[in-house]
Design a protein around this nucleic acid. Structure first.
Ligand SMILES: Nc1ccn([C@H]2C[C@H](O)[C@@H](COP(=O)(O)OP(=O)(O)OP(=O)(O)O)O2)c(=O)n1
Ligand SMILES: [Mg+2]
Ligand SMILES: [Mg+2]
Length: 1173
DNA sequence: GTCATATTAAAG
DNA sequence: CATCGCTTTAATATGAC
């Protein structure tokens, strides 16, 4: 039964689904929810059918990320974990089958694991070559290096799977399109056999081309596969790089497609070629199977002796996170074995996710520009069928850049990124030690009051270099200058040994620079697993010693230790301090060296600052204890060595020295220099806190407390982020959107693992500096960039990648960085909440404070305004025993989930065990959650497309400066004025009172940029006159603004052959929307009509009217959405249609209307706030 | 002063 | 070919109230 229900969903009949689940008895329903997870995870895409039926004409294909993507990934997780239910197991097999089948469809080289040994040996061979190359002084050209480094190993599998999905999606689109045309002439399959890829910006847009291609019988691929499936690449402009990249493809202008369609036959591509005179179709060497470089995840399986970094392992690895989260205690070998069952298993979680993303991918940018011109061509196509192309014709491709456009970019990037490893290790260590303290029975022993502590700072010497060199018995570590790097001129030196340091080589330097200083420098490979292993040994050993008051992890190779008590105890035995410390340090270093073959240095003194400085003195491979003579010790230490003093502060200090004492000062400032500045001056120079800190540092004073027990906050996580400032090269907004979604998913994974949610998100972009070249020296590097941040409150603690992703898209647009200039993207989530704790707290509070768990639609501000004040409790407090497993529920795609959710509520059932995902769980955790979110699955979709600032009507807040308030802040303000929560004195209310003197709706009709000015103007006038002004005043202002904007008001074009006033049009639109909703969306022709009208308006430069109309449509649709989600539904059938209708409208707005205006604005260099267009 | 947000610096 | 320029924290600046 469950299966047939799922099929019903496939058949795009959600309402049947709804009514079916309604008719079940509770037990059946419960069972169904459990089983549906497994069922849903069969390869059938339960959304395509429905999705496509919802498509608006303008956006041929679309995608609701809430409905698949990670949801599906999750499904597979559950399945792979082995769900208790029998069905689940049964379906696990079918999933495996499908994976295997998919893999077989495209001939793939799947296995990565087996390649490990080979990989290693080849790795070493390459190293040899590097070395030789280095010694032979760059004569690099002649030799062809075989067995190219890494690549995206599971690429082919990915595309195998993805292709299947995409084909289906495409096929269904064609079916739908046929249906839509209701038996008008059929579409000639002129592109049969063509596999088409679009690169860069084209006219018509990539989306339009995609639609056309599949409609006319071709295949569309969104990413160039190494296997070279594409028969044609459509590209309007070729950069030199692309020219080389594509030289073996048939590269044609988009016009080829347009003309072909118009002619009704496939025209000769040669007439539209962009690259002349290239041999085509020549069989190229197939790339050797690429070696999989060990990633952190894989390694962890082998290094199970490392107790600390297990977590990190998980955090890193999607696979393990997904597949084996319950097996994390299992031995690595077993996991390995398990994995090997499926050749492509490793990527299973990922691959599947990508597969779905693939669908996303393919239909990249519904949200963005759609070209309109092709519409005509589409409908008037001829009937001819052309010969299909020879599909066997191989088009080989290599050398496609592995930039962030690649679907597997993130995974690979992180696998190779040392800094990512470093950061993750650190975070894991901190989490581990914090947890340890929190769980340990609290020490009742009252803290001894120590007059003077003893702090030890231990750090491996040139850690990566030492560790990496261990495998290289052919190199004499003591005499050969070494550096760990990926190799190449502009790659970073992660760590260099002390031989190299004598040449001036430093960590973080580029290889080119290092080679300049030290031509004989030999580079070593990274071995992240090894580093992890050694670090684990170090920490294990320290814990074992069991003599420290505190073990404070600093990094993978570095730790702070408090041995005060140990020293005191030993002193009672009559030994002296220096002796105790010296002996301990000696023993520790000896033991650690035995364990790891790595040398470690130790600095010891009475505080963290001095310990660090002692460590520096001790290096390499030494120890140093400082007890007395601190001033003498400090005197000549470069200020730069102080912790927290970097380049910038040193520069400031230099400036100060030059200004005050020595105008010709050039050398490095030392602590003596610092000492000469008094405390107040310090404050001025370095800041309120940094100044005094420096003043103290210069005197050897440091109060940093490393006792975790005493300040747990110091280790507590306050943010989670995902940063990528490498490989960021986009040429279309849809790719950016897609990437933002990928980042959100990655963030979500990390959050899941941390069991955390957050309620503020920050997007940070790196934008190529104006002066910086398009291609920076470092390959795919960011170059010199400017950074921009924008943050936004989500209103609810969440980990929902869809929610976060859509917010990011919105933020991206606000930051206004041209796609071409984007060089880096970071996403940070703050205001973190632990899900477990939250749950506990809420459960405790629930019986007493039910309001917390209620969602009260702010009828006052929203619904009432629209005239449908329905106040109701969305979710009742959870008190009773629970009956449905939330985990299971969450694994469902959100559309279905929402239905079930609703059903659960209807039945008064409860959710069981909610430990993974917060955001979509019923309200107990969130009071500010927007009502739509829970009640209407379409909300997710709206959120996906609309910046959240547009997600709500803004009736009462016209006087807020839109610039100043983040979108969700506005939301929050609205919600906070809900009836139950006594509105705090809302300052905005004051103005809204004033505003009621004016026609708010008129103000709201203005584009926000204009509106802002109007309001500002208005405010000024209000202030100066101190008295209410009349409506005329506003109208005056409004006209003034229009003048200012130099909007030419031309004779209005006709709409339906009538000249219409704005008001009439608005009325018309309102009626139209209203009536179209019950039919599941507007009629195609009607939409075209309005689009044409808009086009005409813009041609006459009547931007203002366009904006007014768009705004109007938006507002109406949003109002309808809100009403829809707040009104008790009468019966399922209708509401389903309305939901679809609303979705449809949202798409029309976002995919057609807004982009049209946006394009116009860009073309005419008109600046309009994103908020509006 | 407090709060929110953006920006900067530092670390390994 | 290259190359894998992350991530967290604290402090500071700035402006609104
Ligand atoms: N810019 C940097 C700095 C460090 N690291 C990595 C490599 C280092 O081996 C490791 C530890 O950093 P350390 O500062 O401890 O440097 P080393 O251990 O290499 O040298 P030493 O501690 O002897 O100064 O972190 C890196 O990848 N990039
Ligand atoms: Mg070190
Ligand atoms: Mg270190």
């Amino acid at each position: 039964m469950s299966r047939s229900l799922m099929e019903a969903i496939d058949e795009e009949d959600l309402s049947e689904f709804t009514s079916s689940i309604r008719s079940m008895d509770d037990q059946t329903f419960s069972q169904f929810v459990q089983n549906s997870v497994a069922i849903a995870s069969t390869p059938k895409n339960e959304n395509n059918g429905r999705q496509i039926s919802e498509e608006s004409i303008r956006s041929s294909v679309s995608h609701d990320p809430f409905d698949d993507g990670l949801d599906n990934v999750l499904m597979n997780i559950r399945v792979a974990e082995g769900h208790p239910s029998e069905n689940a197991i049964g379906d696990k097999d079918s999933v495996i089958d499908s994976i295997v089948n998919c893999a077989q469809e495209v001939p793939v080289d799947t296995d990565d694991d087996d390649e490990d040994a080979k990989s290693t040996s080849e790795t070493e061979e390459r190293d040899e070559e590097n070395k030789i190359e280095g010694e032979m002084s760059q004569t690099s050209s002649a030799e062809i290096v075989i067995g190219k480094p890494h690549g995206f190993g599971d690429y082919a599998t990915y595309f195998g799977n993805k292709a299947a999905k995409q084909q289906k999606a495409d096929h269904e689109y064609i079916l739908w399109e046929k249906k839509r045309r209701q038996g008008k002439e059929s579409v000639p399959q002129i592109l049969k056999g063509c596999i088409i890829h679009v690169n860069g910006h084209t006219v018509p847009s990539i989306n339009e081309i995609h639609r056309l291609v599949i409609l006319y019988g071709g295949k569309f691929i969104s990413y160039l596969n190494n296997k070279g499936a594409a028969t044609h690449i459509i590209c309007d402009r070729l950069t030199p790089r692309k020219r080389i990249q594509f030289k073996n493809y048939r590269v044609v202008k988009a016009q080829w497609l347009v003309d072909s369609i118009e002619k009704g036959e496939m025209l000769k591509w040669e007439d539209y070629r962009l690259i002349d005179n290239v041999e085509y179709g020549q069989q190229r060497l197939t790339l050797q199977r690429e070696n999989q470089v060990e990633t952190r995840d894989e390694g962890s399986a082998s290094s199970d002796r490392n107790a600390f970094l297990k977590d990190s392992t998980l955090a890193q690895s999607d696979q393990k996170l997904n597949l084996a989260s319950e097996k994390e205690v299992v031995k690595g070998d077993e996991i390995e074995g398990d994995f090997n069952v499926f050749p492509s298993h490793q990527e299973e979680g990922i691959a599947d996710g990508n597969e779905i993303d693939g669908v996303l991918d393919i239909l990249p940018s519904i949200q963005s520009q759609q070209e309109e011109e092709e519409e005509a061509n589409l409908t008037q196509s001829g009937e001819l069928h052309l010969e299909s192309m020879n599909q066997d014709e191989p088009v080989m491709k290599r050398g496609i850049a592995m930039d962030a456009k690649h679907p597997d970019f993130l995974k690979n990037f992180f696998a190779y990124s040392r800094l990512h490893h470093l950061s993750s290790w650190k975070a894991d260590l901190r989490a581990h030690f914090l947890k340890k303290i929190l769980e340990a029975p609290s020490q009742e022993k009252p803290r001894r009051k120590h007059s003077e502590k003893v702090i030890m700072h231990a750090d491996f010497d040139c850690f990566f270099a030492t560790a990496s060199a261990l495998g290289r018995k052919d190199i004499d570590f003591e005499t050969v200058p070494l550096a760990v790097s990926h190799g190449g001129k502009t790659s970073d030196v992660a760590s260099c040994n002390y031989v190299a340091r004598r040449y001036g080589v430093k960590n973080g330097m580029w290889i080119s620079e290092a080679k300049k200083l030290c031509p004989t420098l030999v580079t070593l490979k990274y071995d992240f697993d090894l580093y992890e292993k050694f670090s684990g040994m170090l920490y294990d050993y320290l814990i074992e010693l069991n003599i420290f008051d505190s073990i404070f992890p600093v990094s993978i190779d570095e730790v702070l230790l408090d041995l005060t008590s140990y020293v005191e105890d030993q002193q009672k035995e009559g030994k002296n301090k220096a002796e105790i410390v010296g002996d301990l340090a000696t023993n520790m270093r000896k033991k650690i060296h035995e364990l790891t073959e790595c040398s470690i240095s130790i600095g010891t003194s009475k505080n963290v600052l001095l310990a660090k400085l002692c460590l520096r003195r001790a290096k390499p491979d030494g120890q140093f204890y400082l007890e007395d003579g601190i001033d003498e010790f400090l005197k000549d230490i470069p200020v730069r060595d102080l912790p927290g003093i970097g380049r910038s502060l040193v520069e400031k200090l230099k400036d100060e020295i030059i200004r005050t004492t020595d105008s010709s000062f050039t050398s490095t400032p030392t602590i003596s220099h610092l000492r000469q500045i008094d405390e107040t001056r310090m404050k001025v120079l370095f800041g309120e806190k940094t100044g005094p800190k420096l003043w103290q540092y210069s005197r050897g004073i440091d109060n940093t407390n490393i006792d975790i027990r005493e300040n747990k906050d110091s280790l507590k996580r306050k943010s989670v982020s995902v940063d990528v400032n490498y490989g960021i090269r986009f040429d279309h907004i849809s790719q950016v959107d897609n990437f933002l979604m990928e980042l959100s998913k990655e963030l979500y994974r990390r959050l899941m693992h941390l069991t955390m949610c957050g309620s503020s998100v920050t997007l940070r972009l790196a934008r190529r500096a104006v002066t910086a070249p398009i291609d920076p020296p470092k390959y795919l590097g960011m170059g010199y960039c400017n950074f921009l941040n924008k943050s936004s409150k989500l209103g609810v603690p969440t980990n929902d990648w869809g929610l976060i992703g859509s917010e990011l898209k919105s933020l991206y647009r606000m930051l206004n960085v041209p796609v071409y200039d984007l060089r880096g993207v970071s996403v940070t989530l703050t205001n973190l909440v632990d899900i477990e704790e939250l749950k506990k707290n809420r459960q405790r509070q629930l019986p007493f404070k039910p309001p917390v768990t209620m969602i009260i639609p702010s009828a006052e501000t929203k619904v009432a305004e629209v005239g449908t004040s329905t106040e109701k409790l969305v979710i009742e407090p959870i008190i009773d025993p629970l009956e449905v497993d939330l985990d299971v529920l969450e694994a469902l795609p959100s559309s279905i989930r929402a239905e079930i959710q609703e059903e659960i509520n209807r039945r008064g059932m409860k959710i069981l065990k909610s430990d993974s995902k917060l955001s979509d769980s019923p309200a107990p955790f969130s009071r500010d959650i927007s009502p739509q979110k829970l009640h209407s699955p379409t909300k997710s979709y709206m959120q996906q497309l609309l910046p959240s600032s547009l997600g709500k009507p803004e009736y009462t807040r016209v006087f807020e400066s839109p610039k100043k308030l983040s979108p969700s802040k506005r939301i929050r303000n609205q919600i906070s004025s809900s009836p139950t929560k006594k509105p705090k004195p809302n300052k905005n209310r004051r103005s809204s009172e004033d505003s009621s003197l004016y026609d708010e709706s008129v103000i709201n009709e203005l584009p926000s940029s204009v509106r802002k000015e109007v309001l500002k103007d208005l405010e000024i006038k209000l202030k100066s006159k101190k008295k209410k002004k009349s409506l005329e005043k506003f109208i005056l202002t409004s006209n003034w603004i229009i003048d200012q904007k130099k909007c030419l008001i031309l004779p209005s074009p006709t709409f339906q052959n009538k000249f219409m006033s704005l008001k009439e049009l608005q009325q018309l639109l309102s009626d139209w929307i209203e009536s179209s909703l019950v039919q599941g969306g507007p009629h195609v022709d009607d939409v075209n009509l309005i689009l044409d009208y808009f086009e005409e308006l813009l041609q006459q430069d009547n931007l203002l009217r366009c904006m007014n109309l768009l705004r109007h449509v938006k507002v109406v649709v949003e109002c309808k959405s809100i009403i829809f989600s707040n009104v008790e539904r009468t019966e399922g059938e209708d509401s389903q249609l309305i939901k679809e209708g609303l979705d449809e409208w949202a798409k029309i707005i976002e995919s057609s209307l807004r982009p049209m205006i946006q394009r116009y604005c860009i073309q005419n260099v008109i600046e309009v706030e994103y908020d509006f267009i």
